[in-house]
Amino acid sequence: MKTIAASTAISTSKFLPGFSAIVLGLTVILGLGFLQDANNYLHNAAHDGRHSAAFPCH
């Protein structure tokens, strides 16, 4: 069982800062890659970036 602790355990004080960073990162990525607004402003602004990063577009 020692190997589990060595490979996957995260000290409790380090859990939340890392977790918060991951939640923020995923929010930014998914927002930029996926959000569609009624007037397509966001889609058209992000268009070339989405195509080039292989996000599903259109």
């Binding site: 800062p17 890392g18 977790f19 960073a21 991951i22 923020l24 990162g25 995923l26 929010t27 930014v28 990525i29 930029l32 890659g33 602004a45 992000a46 070339d48 970036g49 989405r50 990063a53």
Partner: peptide, 15 residues
């Protein structure tokens, strides 16, 4: 777009 997605991806890497 690239700067902000880079920020998001870098957050996953650094965390």
């Amino acid at each position: 777009f690239n700067g902000l997605t880079g920020f998001g991806f870098a957050l996953l890497i650094s965390a």
